[in-house]
């Protein structure tokens, strides 16, 4: 099973990340809708990193528990971190001019979502999307 890390520095990096996720989706046989959800969630998180931390990286891998296969993405940055996690996970909360859907929206799109962050300590977001989308 391949795991692959791609740095996130510029907007265009997303194109590379996305094509790699597409490959993983093809490998697991994930359908188009779940693939679209996962890539959209990834897009939100890449934007978040570029907006707040300026740079970071993402690790992409296939995971399986019992017969279930899924794709796991781990976004890591060493940016300023998030001061109020609870607020950041609420719809409409944004410190920039965004719609404030980034984090909570991404969470709604995938099966599992975890975030770790503290001011000055950067942010780690882990998400898993199972092949069946649940």
């Amino acid at each position: 099973m391949s795991n692959h890390t791609i740095p996130i520095v510029r907007e265009q990096d997303f194109i590379l990340i996305r094509s790699h996720i597409q490959e993983l989706c093809a490998e697991t046989g994930m359908n188009l809708i779940n693939q679209t959800k996962l890539i959209t969630a990834a897009s939100e998180l890449v934007r978040n990193i570029l907006n707040y931390a300026k740079s970071g990286k993402v690790m992409m891998e296939i995971v399986s528990i019992n017969a279930r296969q899924g794709i796991k993405l781990t976004f890591t940055d060493e940016g300023p971190g998030i001061e109020n996690l609870q607020a950041a996970m609420q719809d409409g909360y944004s410190t920039s001019s965004g719609m404030g859907l980034g984090l909570p929206g991404a969470k709604r799109l995938v099966s599992e979502f975890a975030i770790q962050s503290a001011p000055g300590k950067g942010t780690i977001v882990t998400l898993i999307h199972w092949k069946d989308g649940h």
Binding site: I33, Q35, T36, D91, M99, L101, G105, R108, L109
Partner: peptide
């Protein structure tokens, strides 16, 4: 279709 479904789930 996949985009429409995703936007709805995203809450956009």
């Amino acid at each position: 279709p996949a985009v429409a479904i995703t936007l709805v789930e995203l809450g956009l």
